[in-house]
Design a protein around this nucleic acid. Structure first.
Lengths: 254, 254
DNA sequence: CCATAACTGTGAACGATGTTCTCGTCAAGG
DNA sequence: CCTTGACGAGAACATCGTTCACAGTTATGG
C-alpha cells in the first residue's frame, strides 16, 4: 500500500548487495528504472499527466507492458517516481538560482523567477507536482522527502539573511503563540529562525507557488496582461512579507 | 472543438425557443442535464476527478453510457460543466461569507475561512477547479466566466473598503507602470481602484488560494502542525498586504 | 390530420487502457 | 554441476471513452 521506490516482487537490493555479483545485477536494475522514468518523463511532456499511459511508456522502450510491473508496482507508482524526479529537478534549479548571488534580496528574486521559468518549460511536470494529487499518494514519504529538498532553499536563504542581520523585523502583526507553535516542524529545518519570520515565510512561499500555479493553470487569463511584470511585483511583495529588502536594494516594506 | 454547454447534435435551443412547445422539451432537457451533473458531482465526491468515469455516471442514472453523449459531447465536457458548477458553488459560499459583516477586515477573514472550509468539505471539487487543468479546456470561455464570479467577491470587498476610506495606503513598495498596466483587465471590474491595490490584491489572492491548495494537496504535511492557526495568520498577512485592517480591529501592517 | 423531421435512448461494437497470470529463458549462487 | 529466482513476453480480463445503426417518441408543417 505505501509507495515503494523498488516494489519488485523479490528485491535483491533489500539488504546489502550480497557477496559481490549481486551488486552488478542491482546496478543494471536501477539503470533500467532510470530509463523507464526517462521514457515516462518524455511521454509526460507530450501528453500530460492525465493521459500518461503505461503502455505508451512500454512502447517507447520496446518492452511488453507487463514487464514494467517488475519495476513499478502500478501506474501510480511510476507517476510518484516522476513526481519525485520533478521535485528534485525543481530543487536543483532553485538551488542554482539561489547560488547566483550573495544578497538575500537578489537570491529571493532569482529563486522565484527560476521557479516560474521552470514551470513554463515543464508545465506538465509542474502540474504533476502542484496539481491534483495522485490519489492514494498524498503526503507519501518519498514525495514529502523530495519536497523538503525544494523547501530547504528559501529556508536557508532566510537563515542566511537573518544571520547577516539584513532581515527587517516582521511587521506590526503580532504572532499568536498557536501560530508560532504550528510552524515548529518547519522551524526544525531552520534552527534559530524567528517563528514570526517562519510563519510569514510560509505565507510568502504559498503566494509564490500559488501565483505560478494560478498562472500556469489558466486562472489569470482574463485578469492580467503582462504576467512577467506582475509576477515580479508579486515576488517583491512576498519578499517584503518576510522582511527581505528586495528590488534594486530599495527597502521593501516598512 | 470549443466547449459548449449543450453540444447536442441538433440543438433546439440554438436560437429562440421556437413557437411554443419547444420550450417544454428544452426544459426537461436542461433538467436532465442538471441531473447528470448532480450524478457526476456525487461520483466525483467518491472517486475523485481522475477516476470519474462516464459509465459510472450513466449507471448511477440508469442510463446507457451512450445516452450521455446527447447532452455532453465528451467526458471532458462533463468535467468542465462540473468545474463551472464548482466555481459557482464556491462563489456562492464566498458571497455568503462576505455578507456576514460590514467591516472589510472581517469580511476578508470570513471570505478566506469560508473558502478553506469549503475546500475541506469538497476536496475533489477543489482539485477539479484549482488542480491540474483538464487538457484542452484551459481558460475556456465558460470557466473564465465562472471564475470571475468568484473573483468578483474580494474585488467588491476592496472597492467598498476603499470607498469607505478604511484601506491603508499601500506600503513603501513603488508600483512600476508596467505592473499597473498589467492589472488593467482586472481593474475593469473595479473602477476607481488604485492600481497598486489591485496588484497587491492579486498577490494576496494568490497567497490565499495557494495556501489552501498546498494544504489540500498535501504539500504541508511535514511542515505545519496547526493548519487552522497558521492559515488564519496567513489570511491576516494577505489582508495586510492590500491595506486591510484585519484581526480583531487591530491595525494590520504599518 | 397526417407525414416528415428531429430528438431521445438502447445495444453492440471498436480500440485502448491498467493489471494479472502463466510460461519460457537465462544468469547468478551454492 | 544444478537449483533458484529474476526477467521478459504474451495472452487474457475487466473497464473505459467513443461511435454507430437502429427503434421509439415527440414536435413541426403542410
Amino acid at each position: 500500500m505505501p509507495p515503494a521506490v523498488s516494489p519488485a516482487p523479490g528485491s535483491p537490493g533489500a539488504d546489502g548487495p550480497g557477496p559481490s555479483a549481486a551488486g552488478a545485477r542491482a546496478r543494471v536494475r536501477v539503470e533500467l528504472m532510470r530509463e523507464i522514468t526517462d521514457a515516462g518523463r518524455a511521454e509526460l511532456a507530450e501528453v500530460g499527466p492525465a493521459a500518461l499511459s503505461l503502455r505508451a511508456v512500454a512502447r517507447r522502450l520496446g518492452m511488453a507492458p507487463s514487464a514494467l510491473y517488475r519495476y513499478y508496482a502500478s501506474r501510480d507508482h511510476l507517476l510518484t517516481a516522476l513526481i519525485v524526479d520533478a521535485y528534485n529537478a525543481l530543487a536543483a534549479t532553485a538551488a542554482a538560482a539561489d547560488a547566483t548571488s550573495q544578497d538575500p534580496g537578489r537570491r529571493w528574486m532569482a529563486l522565484g523567477r527560476a521557479l516560474r521559468e521552470w514551470s513554463g518549460g515543464h508545465p506538465h511536470e509542474w502540474a504533476l507536482v502542484f496539481g491534483s494529487p495522485v490519489p492514494g499518494f498524498v503526503g507519501s514519504e518519498e514525495t514529502t522527502a523530495a519536497a523538503t529538498g525544494l523547501h530547504r532553499v528559501p529556508i536557508e536563504l532566510l537563515v542566511d539573511a537573518a544571520g547577516a542581520g539584513v532581515l527587517d523585523a516582521p511587521g506590526g502583526l503580532p504572532v499568536p503563540p498557536a501560530v508560532a507553535a504550528s510552524v515548529a516542524p518547519m522551524a526544525a529545518l531552520a534552527p534559530g529562525l524567528d517563528p514570526a519570520v517562519a510563519a510569514a515565510a510560509l505565507a510568502a512561499w504559498a503566494q509564490v507557488l500559488g501565483a505560478i500555479s494560478l498562472e500556469r493553470f489558466g486562472h489569470f487569463v482574463g485578469a492580467v496582461d503582462d504576467q512577467d511584470a506582475w509576477f515580479d511585483h508579486c515576488l517583491r511583495l512576498a519578499g517584503g512579507l518576510v522582511g527581505l529588502r528586495v528590488g534594486g536594494g530599495a527597502p521593501a516594506v516598512r
